[in-house]
Simulated assay, not measured.
Amino acid sequence: MSAASPAHPQPPGATQAAQAERDVIHTARYTLVNLTPDDALRQPLHQITRHTLQGHTKSARLTRGDGLHAWLAGTGYGLCLPVSSDSRLFYSSPLPDVWRNAGPMRVETALQAIAGLAWKMTVDEVSRTVCFVPYWQLQSGVVRG
C-alpha cells in the first residue's frame, strides 16, 4: 500500500468513544468527573422533579396557571401571556387535586398532563416561553379571541 491511499474508515461509534474519553478528567485519585453537561442542564424542561402545591387550605382553589407556574419555577422558562379568551379560561380553570402532590416526573410531561388532551404545548426556545394552543385551533386554523 502506498502512503497516498485513504485511511481506513472508523466504525460509527469510535469517534464518539474517543470524544467521551476526552470529556472526563481526574479530580482526585479515584474520582473522574464528566465534563459533558447532563441532559437537564442542556434542556431544562427534561429535568425530573416533584412538586407539592399548597393553598392555604385543602379547599383553596388552585388553578391550572398556578400548577404550570410551579412546575416551570427554576427552569428559566415562563408561560405565554393569556391573550385569547380560550387561554384566559385555560389558565384560570381549577387544578385537579391530584396535582397538589405530583412527581417525580419530567417537567415537560407534567406541563402537558396539567394542560390535558385538548391543549398542545409549544415551546419557543429563543424567548424560553411555553405556550398552550387548543387542538381545535391547530386543526381548523380558527383563532378565537
Rank of each mutant, 00 (worst) to 15 (best):
L89Y: 13
F132N: 06
L117R: 11
Q10E: 14
S59E: 14
G67S: 03
Y135A: 08
G55E: 04
R50T: 08
Q139Y: 09
Q43M: 02
G74C: 06
P104H: 09
T57Y: 07
P44Y: 03
V133C: 11
L89C: 11
R42P: 00
V83L: 15
T36Y: 02
F90D: 01
T57C: 02
Q112T: 11
G76W: 04
P134M: 09
F90C: 08
L138V: 12
S140R: 09
A14G: 06
D23C: 10
T49K: 06
R22D: 01
V98Q: 14
P82V: 13
P11L: 11
I114T: 02
Q54E: 14
G103T: 11
L68G: 04
F132E: 09
Y135P: 00
T31Y: 01
S93L: 07
P6T: 05
A60S: 15
H26P: 01
P134G: 06
D66N: 15
A20V: 06
E125P: 08
A20N: 12
A3W: 11
Q54G: 03
T27I: 15
S140E: 13
L138I: 11
D97I: 04
W71T: 05
V107A: 06
H46C: 00
E125T: 13
R64I: 06
A70G: 02
V123A: 10
T57D: 06
